[in-house]
């Protein structure tokens, strides 16, 4: 790749970085930049941010193939480690009420 082309592409990437950072700031802050419009951690914050992302990444071009939108794969917290006993009834037959 020609050096000039490479520099052009890097500049495009940095420009995107800056516009993304600016857009993020606009979602999280008031125009004055002092008071947050949306509380981080709230559902509205996340949905607003994702709406921005989708609008920004898919507008007017055909090169966002596969951009079907983000999907939450979350399944809540995990707490596997515990000190409870695990058992069944192989030795004894049915479980009796405590």
């Amino acid at each position: 790749m020609k050096q000039s082309m490479k520099a052009l592409l890097a500049a495009a990437a940095v420009s995107g970085l800056m516009s993304g950072a600016t857009a993020l700031a606009s979602v999280t802050s008031s125009p004055s930049g002092t008071a947050p419009m949306l509380n981080a951690g709230s559902a509205s914050f996340t949905s607003s941010l994702l709406a921005h992302v989708h609008k920004h990444s898919c507008k007017g071009k055909n090169n966002c193939k596969g951009q079907g939108g983000c999907k939450s794969g979350d399944n809540g917290c995990k707490g596997k480690n515990s000190c409870k006993g695990k058992g069944g009834c192989a030795t004894d037959g049915s479980k009796m009420p405590g």
């Binding site: 006993g85 004894d92 479980k95 405590g98």
Partner: peptide, 19 residues
């Protein structure tokens, strides 16, 4: 904690009220 009684032993299951 609570536990579970079986015919021949008791298991520390933490799944019942305190006896």
């Amino acid at each position: 904690a609570g536990h579970s009684k079986f015919e021949k032993y008791i298991l520390d299951t933490h799944d019942h009220p305190v006896l």
